[in-house]
Design a protein around this nucleic acid. Structure first.
Lengths: 223, 223
DNA sequence: AAATGTAATTATGAATTCATAATTAAGTCA
DNA sequence: TGACTTAATTATGAATTCATAATTACATTT
């Protein structure tokens, strides 16, 4: 352990990137919506310079789209984008699972067991918010457990983009039960440190989530 | 064919992002080097505003690192970053191979055959620049053939970062021969439209490239 | 001469200003 | 009334300006 953490006082634009990205993820800024610089400047109490810097970064991350002389718009989460994103996330999680099996300490795995139990408790209590949180904790722990910064960064970005669609569909009871079952299998492989199997299970888990997701969207547009 | 290309007058910052990124990839801007805004402004004949916007984007892409009040430095391509990046690229190419097998038309495949033959010719002629170009063309065609924008974007970014290390090592004759052989296998699977096998071969191809790469680095630091 | 403290210089973060492209509003004519 | 012009307004891209942090140059002390 080093003597001190490096001092990290974020600049305005860094802060703005995070804050505006959160507004998009939390659906406070709606897809397709124009994002007038003036309004955001007033909302955040900053000038246009750092705000525009932030918008450039958010555009490169895919949360807004910039049109020359016509400002920024929040991007839509299209069906196609979801269809493209899920397979990529699935492969990233597969890799993460394989690496985590090798990299995680027994203590780390025990902590994930705790989170897994918390997730089961949320399921039993039919507490969806708690379930989503616990579920996210577990996936995040496995991703971080892979100890691969590139993998983590790219996964984080894609996960944030997917997360924007969470308002579109709600988890069916069947899919919820299946997800719980898949997580049980994941834990079994993690305990056994079976890298290949954990990877395959995580990949399938995301692919199944995707299938349910698309069904949900279809059902929504039908109804 | 449409009557005209859409007018694409990129904003200064977009142009700058591409230009400066290329400077970094082409090693014109060296790792660790400070990038004084003033110098770049003069070099490109623009003011600091669009230049700084570009630096923010390049920082989010990992080509420079920004320290508050201390400007931008070109990032180093560390051993660890390479070790993290290759496995991710390998999985992305695996996915691309699987998708391309399904998505590509017979005509597309015939074009890739052409590029493959060009690559073989370059190998026979011992023409390394031509080989690298042909090789890159093939991989790019397969990635684009997957018709997955997310996959393509993320692959492009990672490939650019890897490319920065190409100056560090040179291809051994053994590895070159092996790479040619792996490409032959890839073409066999592509012709047969065997998605799973093409994916696995492409994944292994990148992993082997990585292993040779690391050996090359080791040899370099030994010598 | 080396180390420390201080002033001058430079570079950066952010606000402001300016020029121009888009958009909106108003006006004109059929 | 409704389509088409044209003027006014607004928003954006980029340059400039300003305040301050960081660096450098210099002086002082031992």
């Amino acid at each position: 352990m080093s003597l001190a953490e490096t001092i990290n006082r974020p600049t305005l634009h860094q802060e703005l990137v995070d804050r505006i990205r959160n507004l998009v993820i939390e659906d406070k800024l709606k897809p397709g919506e124009k994002v007038p610089e003036k309004d955001l400047c007033e909302a955040f109490g900053v000038s246009r310079t750092p705000l525009r810097e932030a918008l450039k970064v958010l555009a490169s991350e895919g949360f807004v789209i910039l049109q020359a002389n016509r400002g920024a718009r929040v991007t839509h989460v299209t069906r196609q984008e979801l269809a493209d994103t899920f397979p990529v996330i699935a492969r990233l999680e597969q890799l993460a699972g394989e690496l985590a099996c090798v990299q995680l300490s027994d203590v780390d795995i025990a902590q994930i067991e705790d989170r897994h139990r918390a997730m089961l408790a949320a399921y039993s209590a039919n507490d969806r918010p708690a379930y989503f949180q616990a579920n996210q904790n577990i996936h995040q722990a496995l991703i971080q457990g892979a100890q691969n910064k590139i993998l983590e960064d790219h996964h984080k970005l894609l996960a944030a983009r997917i997360q924007r669609a969470r308002f579109m569909v709600n988890l069916s009871n069947d899919r919820w039960a299946a997800a719980i079952s898949e997580h049980e299998t994941m834990m079994t492989h993690l305990r056994a440190r079976d890298a290949a199997q954990l990877g395959l299970t995580m990949k399938a888990h995301i692919e199944n989530k995707f299938a349910a997701f698309m069904q949900g969207i279809d059902a929504q547009s039908d109804g």
